[in-house]
């Protein structure tokens, strides 16, 4: 565990907390993609199956359970809460799951370290996490008024990615056997997806304006 990884995890946790807070406090999920949230829930389920058979640290297990619980809590609010679900932009959130899930599953079946069920699911979760933000980015591009909490949520997620890359660079330099190329490539792609968003986020922040993405 290094400082970069800890910062990454904390930004990840913070992004989820901001989203949950937004939903609970404003009773609204406007601007949030349910597709992205459900994909994240699927990512966590596939990746954290190892909760049942491997133990790394109390910190790891605690965070895994927290991520699972919060992901399902967000999905539950957006799908079933009487008030919140009415604010969901159903017509705008049209990204098809199959376009993301199918290629990731295929890739995980072909490109993995070991052809076992848990290892393939773990690899699938890594690939899927890399692209799961796409429905959210598409939704934001369609939405005229992006509220600050939504913008901050995505920015925090981007910060989490950024710190994880620093963490990998650090581990690559300090650990003899750190050669996780599947994680590296997926992670870089995932972070690159945020680059465009961050450009406009910084632009609007500098101009002290509400975030608006160009069509």
């Amino acid at each position: 565990m290094n400082l970069f990884r800890l910062c990454g995890d904390m930004f990840h946790l913070l992004s989820i907390m901001v989203l949950l807070l937004k939903i609970r406090a404003t009773r609204s999920c406007r601007g949030i993609s349910l597709k992205t949230q459900e994909l994240y829930a699927l990512v966590f389920v596939c990746r954290y199956l190892d909760l049942f058979y491997s133990f790394i640290s109390v910190y790891n297990s605690f965070m895994k359970v927290t991520f699972l619980a919060t992901a399902f809590s967000i999905v539950r609010y957006m799908r079933y809460d009487k008030v919140v679900k009415q604010t969901y932009d159903r017509e705008q959130d049209t990204f098809r799951y199959v376009f993301l899930i199918a290629p990731c599953l295929l890739l995980a079946l072909v490109l993995n370290h070991r052809f076992t069920l848990t290892e393939v699911l773990w690899t699938f979760s890594i690939y899927l996490e890399a692209v799961a933000i796409l429905p959210q980015l598409v939704l934001m591009q369609r939405t005229q008024n992006i509220d600050n909490l939504t913008a901050n949520y995505v920015a925090l997620l981007g910060a989490y990615r950024g710190f994880y890359i620093l963490n990998w660079i650090y581990r690559f330099a300090t650990e003899r056997h750190y050669r996780q190329w599947i994680v590296w490539i997926s992670g870089v792609i995932q972070t690159a997806l945020y680059a465009d968003f961050f450009f406009y986020y910084a632009l609007c922040w500098k101009a002290n304006k509400r975030l608006q993405l160009p069509a």
């Binding site: 990746r47 790394i56 965070m63 050669r179």
Partner: peptide, 10 residues
Amino acid sequence: AADGQAHDEL
């Protein structure tokens, strides 16, 4: 792990 594939991150 020796093969560097321990899933010790989140």
